[in-house]
């Protein structure tokens, strides 16, 4: 019996019919394009807005293409993460709350397949959105500024994809553990943002933590991160993802009886 296939098909249909698989990538693409475009027009914009005395010249340093790509990442770290968390906060908690889960749970359901089918669907959407967005940014930076070396870009985007998977795993595990979508989102946002802040404040004391992935991803643009720290960070992130997957599956099963009958 292949429950994973059946359940993944359901998730696929759902994401198709609530259009998540279309609009989430489009929003990431939009933010990917906006960053290089604003940078390109910033001098002209300041020129037309400011009442500068005659003869004053604004000298803005032309941003490096790598810096713009890093700024796109900054946008994703705020708005992008919030969108992914809000889009998938109800994956499990919402099904339990609305009562739609009951007709699944009453069957001999594999909670592992149930959880993993949702995780894979959200993961595909998240990683695809980030790649499309970053590629759009890459193309615009190439048109308006200079080309970023393609290998550097691939290392940058590839490293960042691990971070996206971690965030997706956090939100799905939270959705399995929390009684409703709102609390799942609150817990995920707190984990993703506050732990990053904590890492940036105290992170000088250690060199590897999953929270440093976005920073290490950006370092690929300028050279390469310390490889030992880098691999340890990735290994730790993957360990986190695996632990959260087990936790999420366990919680999905444990909390099944809280589904509305």
């Amino acid at each position: 019996m292949n429950q994973f296939g059946v359940l993944f098909r359901k998730e696929w249909r759902e994401n198709l019919r609530n259009y998540k698989i279309f609009w989430i990538p489009i929003v990431f693409i939009l933010f990917g394009i906006l960053e290089p475009v604003t940078n390109y027009f910033l001098p002209q914009l300041l020129d037309s807005l400011g009442n500068l005395p005659e003869g004053a010249v604004i000298e803005l340093p032309v941003p490096q293409p790598e810096e713009i790509l890093q700024a796109v990442l900054g946008q994703y770290q705020l708005i992008g993460m919030a969108i992914l968390i809000l889009a998938y906060m109800g994956s499990i908690a919402g099904e339990r709350k609305s009562g739609t889960a009951t007709l699944l749970y009453v069957r001999p359901l594999s909670f592992r397949d149930y959880f993993l089918s949702k995780w894979l669907m959200a993961g595909i959407t998240g990683v695809m959105s980030v790649w499309l967005g970053l590629l759009a940014a890459y193309y615009y930076i190439f048109l308006l500024f200079e080309q970023v070396e393609i290998i550097s870009f691939l290392q940058f985007a590839g490293t960042y994809s691990v971070w996206i998977l971690l965030v997706i795993t956090i939100v799905l595990a939270a959705s399995a553990a929390m009684p409703n979508a709102g609390m799942a989102a609150a817990v995920s946002l707190a984990l993703v943002f506050f732990m990053q802040i904590a890492d940036s404040l105290l992170g000088a004391y250690w060199t590897f933590s999953p929270m440093k992935i976005p920073a290490y991803a950006a370092q690929w643009l300028y050279g390469k991160p310390d490889m030992s720290d880098y691999w340890w960070t990735l290994a730790l992130a993957i360990a986190f993802i695996l632990a959260l997957l087990f936790f999420g599956i366990w919680m999905a099963k444990r909390k099944a009886s809280t589904a509305k009958v």
């Binding site: 019996m1 429950q3 059946v6 359940l7 098909r9 359901k10 249909r13 759902e14 019919r17 609530n18 609305s98 009562g99 739609t100 009951t102 007709l103 699944l104 069957r107 001999p108 359901l109 509305k260």
Partner: peptide, 21 residues
């Protein structure tokens, strides 16, 4: 009974049947 509103009756039934073995 609560159903996934975006699913057709037949789609739901097919999923239910398969999940029931």
């Amino acid at each position: 009974p609560h159903f996934f509103p975006w699913m057709t009756a037949l789609e739901f039934m097919e999923m239910a049947a398969k999940l029931s073995g």
